[in-house]
Amino acid sequence: MGELAEPFNMALPSFMKHVGVLESTGLIRSRKRGRIRTCTLERKKLAAAERWFADQRAIWASRYQNLDSLLETLTGEDRES
């Protein structure tokens, strides 16, 4: 843990808090042996999460493109009437 925290300009307790958040999401796992806590990155889970967020983004991007077209049609109808 100390080794992980080193590159960050942050006190160890604050760093532990951030690690705690990641751990609660299941994106990392940690194991304590004696006084040493080791962290493992859950690559598969992390990839699944990124995939899902990308899907969500794609959904919104696509539906809003549909809305652009609809708005264009509707404002066009307005002008004609």
Partner: peptide, 30 residues
């Protein structure tokens, strides 16, 4: 958080979000 601008007045954009016949024309992604 999703933020998006639309080239139309607010009332029309609101209608598109709240009326079934308009929602049916855009909500699902292609």
């Amino acid at each position: 958080t999703v933020k998006r601008e639309f080239a139309a007045e607010r009332q029309l954009v609101w209608d598109c979000h709240t009326k079934r016949e308009l929602l049916d024309r855009w909500f699902a992604p292609k």
